[in-house]
Amino acid sequence: MSFLQALLDFMGLGGRLHLEWISSAEARKFVQVVTEFTAKIKVLGPNPIKGWQGPEIPDSLPSIFEGRALGV
């Protein structure tokens, strides 16, 4: 497994993305080469990134705050 695939796997994007490396014209100006070690992600198949619609906030949640409830 390549470095980036391992990282994507950790973030839950394992095996779903095709990666393409790009380099920028400015890259040479960078202090070191690694700064341009940057991935632009191309999507193959179902795209979980587009699928992200924001967090699902659950209805009930134990609060660690002890507030006064209704009618008390």
Partner: peptide, 22 residues
């Protein structure tokens, strides 16, 4: 919110904070 507070957002626009609201 993470500690369990409720969040209500009222805004004519669908603002970023709304993503976290109940």
């Amino acid at each position: 919110k993470e500690k369990g507070a409720k969040l209500i957002v009222a805004d004519p626009r669908n603002i970023h904070l709304a993503e976290f609201a109940d």
